[in-house]
Amino acid sequence: MKAAVLYEPNTELVIENISIRKPVGREVLVKTVYAGLCHSDLHFIEGLYPHPVPLVPGHEAAGVVEAVGPDVTYVKPGDHVITCLAVFCGTCETCLSGKPAICSNPEVRPEMGSSTELSWEKKPHLNKFLNLSSFAEQMLVHENALAKIRKDMPLDRAALIGCGVLTGFGAVVNTAQLQPGESVAVIGCGGVGMAAVNGAWISGAGQIIAIDTNPDKRQLASKLGATVVIDPSDGDIVAQVLELAPDGVHHAIECLGLKSTAEQAFRMTARGGGATIVGMVPYGLNIEVDGLSLLYERRLQGSFMGGGSFRTDMPRLIELYLQNRLKLDEWISERISLEEINRGFAAMKAGTGMRSVIEFR
Rank of each mutant, 00 (worst) to 15 (best):
E121C: 05
A205Y: 02
V192F: 07
A275R: 02
C84Y: 10
V289Y: 05
P154Y: 13
P23K: 11
C95E: 08
K128L: 09
E107R: 13
N214A: 05
K123T: 15
V28T: 07
I230W: 07
A101E: 14
S222A: 14
Q207A: 01
E243P: 00
V289T: 04
D329L: 09
I211H: 08
H142G: 04
L130S: 00
V65M: 14
L292T: 10
Y321K: 07
C89V: 05
T73N: 15
F169H: 00
G235Y: 06
I102G: 08
L328R: 00
T213Q: 06
A346H: 12
Q219L: 13
L224Q: 09
A67S: 14
G206H: 09
K349H: 08
A196W: 05
T83A: 12
S119Q: 11
T91L: 02
D313R: 06
E8H: 13
D234I: 01
A210E: 01
I318F: 05
M314L: 14
L258I: 09
T175E: 12
S97K: 07
P52K: 10
T116K: 14
H250T: 13
G351K: 14
V75M: 02
K148C: 04
K148P: 00
P9M: 06
E93F: 09
A210Q: 02
G306T: 01
Y49T: 07
L132E: 07
I208N: 00
I45E: 09
G308C: 03
V72Y: 01
E93C: 01
I358E: 13
C92S: 10
V33H: 12
E93S: 12
M153G: 02
G90C: 03
S233V: 05
I18K: 00
E121N: 15
G351W: 14
T261N: 08
L300Q: 01
L166W: 05
V281P: 08
S19L: 06
A185Y: 01
G307N: 05
D313I: 09
V53G: 01
E334M: 10
H250P: 00
I211K: 06
T73D: 14
H80A: 03
G291D: 12
G193I: 02
K327N: 11
L322Y: 02
E27S: 07
E359Q: 15
A159I: 10
G291R: 04
Y49S: 09
T227R: 07
G25N: 15
G98H: 10
E46W: 03
E12T: 03
C255A: 15
